[in-house]
């Protein structure tokens, strides 16, 4: 049978929760169209219950992920980049199908891979940079270290369908957090394919959860979820930032809005973004001071 006459197998785009690829529990979907207006895929229109499930999965994965060594997290981020490199063509095709030129799509993917590498390298370094030993004036050893915040909600921007996801995800998980990502609503295909990359990259299930769906429907549920410690989005008109913050205020959620202008620029990657999603923990312990170490007891 010639390639011409062969009937192509279409891909089912599903969501990614706890290392599995379920359909939305709601059974709903919406059509993703190409520039010409032709439907190229039906993706899940996730519900608040999918948000709930994703948060549960992220919480369950958090203990193990945050406990991994920085070195190990770095290895895994690097592995994601390696796997993405191998899936370049598929994701490029999806981007092109959604209206990107070949050159723009290539740049998007290359920047994404390089950004992963950038953060892979940070995994075991930001702690040294942002920790301190504090010279308290009593007989105590006192040090402050960054610790991951926990479960983070990430709202992908309505541009940069892959780079947007990775720019949010990489600093988040590099720092030991787990997350759920709401993909670019109109152009979610790259995000779903990226989930397949994650699934084959040694990333433990639940560390990253990716939902597709309507931003307007799900944002409030994410911001108001009591078990989501922080929410990050990019500056973009579609989001009601004030309302999001009001929702977050109900339980002192950490809310961040990163400048969208930086997405493609050098400033779009920084250890300070890792630090946005870190808490500082300070620990005290007494120091014995006895004869021989300079004093008498």
């Amino acid at each position: 049978m010639s390639e011409q006459s062969r009937l192509e197998i279409w891909k089912t785009y599903k969501i990614y929760i706890g290392g599995q690829f379920p359909r939305t529990e709601s059974g709903r979907s919406y059509a993703v169209k190409n520039a010409a207006g032709k439907t190229i895929a039906n993706v899940c229109q996730s519900s608040r219950k999918d948000v709930r499930d994703a948060v549960s999965a992220a919480r369950a994965a958090w203990g193990g992920w945050s406990n991994r060594s920085g070195f190990n997290r770095g290895q895994i981020l690097y592995r994601i980049a390696e796997m993405l490199e191998g899936r370049k063509k598929q994701i490029k095709d999806e981007l092109i199908a959604q209206g990107y030129t070949s050159a723009v799509a290539t740049r998007e993917i290359n920047l994404s891979i390089d950004r992963l590498i950038y953060y892979a390298g940070w995994c075991d370094k930001y702690q040294s940079l942002f920790s301190s030993v504090n010279p308290v004036a009593s007989a105590h050893y006192n040090f402050s270290v960054p610790e991951p915040m926990g479960v983070v909600g990430l709202l992908a921007p309505q541009k940069a369908p892959l780079l947007g996801v990775i720019s949010l995800m990489a600093p988040c998980i590099a720092g030991g957090n787990t997350c759920l990502i709401l993909a670019n609503q109109e152009q979610p295909l790259a995000a779903v394919s990226f989930a397949e990359v994650l699934n084959s990259s040694d990333v433990p299930g639940g560390v990253v959860n990716i939902l597709t769906g309507y931003q307007e429907e799900l944002t409030d549920w994410i911001c108001a979820h009591l078990d989501v410690n922080a929410v990050v989005c990019y500056e973009q008109g579609e989001l009601d930032w004030q309302k999001m913050q009001e929702k977050g205020a109900s339980h002192v959620k950490r809310m961040f809005r990163w400048p969208a202008t930086q997405l493609y620029a050098q400033g779009g990657q920084s250890p300070y973004l890792i630090m946005d999603l870190q808490e500082i923990k300070t620990t005290w312990h007494p120091v014995q001071t006895i004869a021989g170490s300079g004093g008498a007891y």
Binding site: V136, S138, E279, T282, W284, H285
Partner: peptide, 20 residues
């Protein structure tokens, strides 16, 4: 999950020590 941990001590404060 807390910002300040006092090990074998409690309620110590110092200008050089972050609190929160």
């Amino acid at each position: 999950r807390a910002g300040v941990i006092w090990a074998n001590s409690y309620n110590l404060f110092d200008p050089t020590s972050p609190f929160g």
